[in-house]
């Protein structure tokens, strides 16, 4: 079970969170191309390695936030608030576990 550092509440057990899919998927409803919209709806990267994903602290503050997680080791490299840019890992400091 992961230990997830909520950017609002600090480290909490995974039990308190719900996963909410990949992060930084931009919603652009004005897009004309059906193919592009279809990819927005259904295509995700599913990488082996570092993924930016969304979590919600459902049993805590209720906030959605973003998280960089290594899908191989499950180590969480950074968490940050929704709307903030994806941090570059060189500057994100000590990996948190």
């Amino acid at each position: 079970m992961l230990l997830i550092p909520c950017p609002y509440c600090g480290p909490r057990s995974e039990l308190e969170f719900k996963h909410a899919g990949e992060a930084h998927i931009t919603r652009e409803p004005q897009v004309a191309d059906d193919q592009a919209w279809g990819e927005f709806l259904y295509t995700r990267t599913n990488p082996k390695g570092i993924i930016a994903e969304r979590w919600r602290h459902t049993s805590g503050c209720g906030r959605f936030f973003n998280c960089l997680r290594d899908t191989v080791s499950d180590n969480i490299l950074a968490t940050y608030k929704s709307g903030e840019p994806r941090p570059s890992l060189e500057t994100s400091g000590e990996p948190s576990r």
């Binding site: 919603r27 969304r54 919600r56 959605f64």
Partner: peptide, 13 residues
Amino acid sequence: MAHMEDYLQTEFP
């Protein structure tokens, strides 16, 4: 409720 919170917090903040 979760759907509304999601859009309120992340798409229409």
